[in-house]
């Protein structure tokens, strides 16, 4: 077989495989959207779920998902950022850092249901935080931290050492160089990583079933005092999220329109994750443009 023919066959096979992957993804996405989008309406998004009758919405679940994501990011981003900066800029290659890296690797492949059960035993039971936003956020942080740390570390690693030498040669300390040169240069890719991980956190269900709970008590959207039980901002209330809601309806839903609610909620979830992914690229690009060519 000559080189030209081999190349043609290889190209064709690769195209076929890539096409298969795309077809699979497009099919899945299309199926969920095709089934779900017809059930979407303003009413669906803004009315509470109903346990026994038809016509319930996903208002509280949607809010819970967003709020939980927000709290999770507030907890996990600073830690991941610090850990990522340490690992890439400061850590020396020794047994200690090897252990850290291995631990991060193991943690990042931990099944989320295990994280959930761990969170349940430690946070919900032992620390007595109950089924709450806070418990859920802590579980999600454990779930999110390893991947986010690695993404931050990777972003920093992609900045060439030439930049670090440039800072050093100008008499800047390592800290100054990291904070004012390396971090801004890596920021677009860090933000992309954060938004992508946000998509993953947003769709997570297993880690939340036993931590943030499976019920969505009514919220009073006029009460913004986080210490009131019905306040949306209350951290100690149980909070069923969108993903948990979908799981719940499908496993024990007794609403007459359970299938439709589930399809609609799935569509909302998928759309949200799509928005996260697309905006990750967009924000990353826009930030890069802005940071590299200052006003």
């Amino acid at each position: 077989m000559n080189a030209k023919l081999t190349n043609k066959i290889a190209t064709a096979v690769l195209y076929l495989i890539a096409g298969l992957v795309i077809l699979l993804l497009a099919g899945l996405l299309g199926f969920i959207l095709f089934n779900g989008v017809p059930h979407l309406s303003w009413h669906f998004l803004t009315s509470p779920s109903l346990a026994f009758q038809a016509g319930g919405g996903i208002e509280f679940q949607l809010f819970n998902s967003i709020y939980l994501l927000f709290i999770t990011m507030i907890i996990s981003f600073p830690i991941a950022l610090g850990a990522g900066i340490y690992l890439n800029e400061y850590a020396k290659q020794n047994i200690f850092t090897t252990i850290i890296r291995t631990a991060i690797e193991i943690l990042s492949s931990l099944p989320s249901v295990v994280v959930g059960l761990f969170g349940f035993l430690l946070v919900v039971v032992k620390l007595q935080l109950g089924f709450s936003i806070l418990s859920g956020a802590i579980a999600l942080t454990i779930f999110n931290l390893p991947l986010l740390t690695r993404s931050v570390e990777g972003s920093l690693k992609s900045i060439p050492d030439l930049q670090r030498e440039a800072g050093a040669a100008l008499g800047l300390s390592k800290w100054e160089t990291v904070i004012h040169v390396i971090f801004p240069a890596a920021l677009p890719s860090i933000v992309t990583g954060v938004v992508l991980s946000a998509g993953r956190v947003f769709g997570e269900a297993a880690a939340l079933i036993y931590t943030a709970g499976q019920s969505a008590p009514a919220l009073d959207f006029t009460d913004w005092n986080p210490f009131n039980a019905a306040s949306p901002l209350n951290l100690m209330r149980p909070a069923e999220t969108l993903a948990v809601h979908i799981w719940k309806i499908n496993s024990e839903g007794i609403q007459p329109d359970a299938a439709q609610v589930s399809a609609g909620a799935s569509a909302v979830l998928i759309i949200a994750v799509l928005i996260f992914n697309i905006s990750a690229r967009w924000i990353g690009k826009a930030l890069y443009k802005r940071l590299t060519s200052a006003r």
Binding site: P160, L162, Q163, E165, A166, A169, V181, P184, A185, L291, T292, S293, A294, R295
Partner: peptide
Amino acid sequence: MVFQRPNPFAKS
């Protein structure tokens, strides 16, 4: 010091 490969910061 100036290095072999140009290394301007990703700034203006």
